[in-house]
Computed example of a mutant assay.
Amino acid sequence: MTDKREINPFLKSALDFGPILVFFVAYLMLKDRVFTIGGTDYDGFIVVTAAFIPLLIASTGALWYLTGQLSRMQVATLVLVVIFGGLSVWLNDDRFFKMKPTMIYLLFGGLLGFGLLRGTSYLKYVMEGMMPLQDAGWMILTKRLMLFFFGLAVLNEVIWRTQSTETWVYFKTFGLSIAVFAFFLSQGKLFQTYGTEEAKDDTTPD
């Protein structure tokens, strides 16, 4: 996965976010329908989940083929989707798929926390090329992101356990993405304080 290749950014965005949007649209179309397959009734959510799994596998595989690499986050997400989505379809129980974001955020938060206990920032290894920061800045950002991930895990549990499936789908499709975007947007002061000279030079006019 080291032979990195650049691809059209619109194509990359389509492969990254397309499966999630297809899931959302398909759910809205099929949410009130029940499908009888092999003598068992499946509601629209389960059927859409069953279709989402191979779609995500295909899009992730296409990204790997076109770019020559996958991030650890993409690989972990795919594995958990296959496991928890597969359990939901196999057992005809939507709770497993709804738990998937919880497991993802607990995993990422736990990994960041493990790195912090060892005195290192695993986040730096993943994102150093995108956000040049001093080591102290990476440690602060890693701690904040760890707590943020744990908070999202708790929030996902609260939403799917107390709200309707449709509310959870809206939350999963839009709420989580907006929350992550807002988190990094709120770290502007940290980036200014701990940005390296390389980062500052990139923003200095010629």
Rank of each mutant, 00 (worst) to 15 (best):
M1P: 01
M1A: 12
M1K: 09
K4S: 10
K4L: 13
P9K: 09
F10S: 06
S13W: 07
D16T: 13
F17W: 10
F17R: 01
G18T: 04
I20T: 12
V25S: 01
A26H: 00
Y27I: 02
L28N: 13
M29C: 06
D32H: 07
F35D: 07
T36R: 07
I37L: 14
G39E: 11
Y42T: 08
D43L: 02
F45T: 02
F45C: 02
I46Q: 01
V48T: 09
A50H: 06
A50Y: 05
I57R: 00
I57V: 14
A58F: 13
S59Y: 00
Y65W: 15
L66H: 09
T67H: 06
T67K: 14
Q69P: 02
Q69G: 11
Q69E: 12
Q69N: 14
L70T: 08
S71Y: 06
A76D: 05
A76V: 13
L78D: 05
V81Y: 01
V82G: 04
I83H: 07
G85Y: 02
G86M: 03
L87F: 10
W90N: 10
L91I: 04
N92F: 10
D93G: 11
F97Y: 10
K98Y: 03
M99V: 14
M99F: 15
M99K: 04
P101F: 02
M103C: 14
I104T: 14
Y105D: 03
F108L: 15
F108W: 13
G109K: 12
G110A: 12
L111K: 08
L111Y: 09
L111T: 07
F114I: 15
G115E: 04
L117P: 03
G119S: 07
T120R: 15
T120H: 12
S121L: 07
L123I: 10
V126T: 11
M130E: 15
M131H: 10
L133E: 08
L133F: 09
Q134L: 14
D135E: 15
A136P: 08
G137A: 11
G137M: 05
W138K: 06
M139C: 11
I140E: 05
L141K: 14
M146V: 11
L147K: 11
A153V: 03
A153S: 14
L155Q: 04
L155R: 00
E157V: 07
T165S: 09
E166V: 03
Y170K: 01
F171I: 01
K172W: 01
F174W: 10
I178K: 03
A179F: 01
V180D: 05
F184S: 07
Q187T: 13
Q187R: 08
G188V: 09
F191C: 03
T193V: 09
T193N: 06
T193W: 05
Y194L: 07
Y194S: 04
G195W: 11
G195D: 05
E197H: 08
A199Y: 06
K200L: 10
T203W: 10
T203I: 10
T204H: 13
D206V: 13
